[in-house]
């Protein structure tokens, strides 16, 4: 199953694209996070990295389902 992850701000610069596609499936947000940290160690150097699932901030324990909209949220700086 292809999973597409939306990237913004610093995460877009680190990964080098505005969408990251993985041909793999992860049971939880935490598993996805581990994978990303392994693939892109610079992500761990961010002040924080939230993961949004279906436009809500998600805990690492949240289980992922097919069709979820996933996005990486580096530290926000609006306003």
């Amino acid at each position: 199953m292809d999973q597409h992850i939306l990237l913004f701000g610093a995460t877009k610069d680190i990964i080098g694209s505005s969408i990251y596609s993985i041909n793999d499936s992860f049971k939880t947000v935490g598993e996805l996070r581990e994978h990303l940290y392994k693939q892109f160690p610079s992500l761990e150097k961010l002040n924080s990295l939230m993961i949004a699932v279906n436009m809500n901030y998600a805990e690492d324990l949240l289980e992922l389902k097919a069709g979820d909209e996933i996005a990486l949220i580096p530290p926000v700086s609006g306003g």
Binding site: G9, N47, A52, I73, P74, V76, S77, G78
Partner: peptide, 17 residues
Amino acid sequence: PIWKKEFFENGSVWVAA
């Protein structure tokens, strides 16, 4: 989820990242 990039004479940076 809004991000601000600041541009200076000698480079740019994502604020707070």
